[in-house]
Design a protein around this nucleic acid. Structure first.
Lengths: 107, 107
DNA sequence: GTATTATGCAACCTGGAGGTTGCAGGACAT
DNA sequence: ATGTCCTGCAACCTCCAGGTTGCATAATAC
């Protein structure tokens, strides 16, 4: 279950695009949105939005559900939790390093 | 101070590479490392590592300090804190959305 | 049945990310 | 003073991310 470095890098990479962050902002508010709806809020083509959604889906951040002739995408919180844990670990290591440095100086 | 979406995307993009995550892992443990030292742990060229360090530096995650003939890089925690806050906001929005859905169903 | 709407697929283009090699220059040891 | 070590710069290569256009197809509306 403990995601490998590759997986984390993939999640970060999926978040490393402004358009995709905007898509996440829309989808994490609860309501699923179809591709066409998401395209309306953007200056890009429907195909571009589709590709961005695929990137997010491959990272596990969203998933699509067929609903008749349209495909609704909804948010998936697990990957964000995963990298949040990772950021916590890094911060903790850094804080411990600072603490060691401080106690060394005070000796 | 409140980072724009572009800045966050840049930070995420900088973290979206396995090699750079490894560099961060080394540097967040406290001790600064020179480019040559960091190259030894990798299968890549010194130039490749240099480029990765520049990407991290442009995102504000590390900074380099000249020390004689070598340049030591050290970790910088602010950007990670920044995106951690962002992830908290997204999670909170999602939780609130779930809560609204739950209370709606229970009516 | 026909028109419209939502999506999928494929080809294509462009720029930049990631990587290498080669050379030049500053700093250190002896 | 000379050789060695660490770094910077520049040119180059390859490949894929991001974006577009055009056409095909399934589902809804009328």
């Amino acid at each position: 279950m403990a995601a490998a470095a590759r997986d984390r890098a993939a999640i970060f990479a999926a978040l490393g695009d402004e358009t995709r962050l905007l898509l996440i902002a829309k989808l994490c508010s609860g309501q699923p949105h179809s591709i066409s709806e998401l395209t309306l809020d953007s200056k890009l083509t429907r195909q571009a939005i589709t590709k961005h959604l695929r990137v997010l889906q491959r990272a596990g951040i969203v998933h699509g559900v067929r609903a008749g002739r349209e495909k609704r995408f909804e948010f998936d919180p697990e990957p964000m939790q995963e990298i949040k844990q990772y950021l916590d670990i890094v911060s903790e290591q850094w804080d411990q390093a600072l603490a060691r440095l401080k106690s060394f100086v005070e000796d």
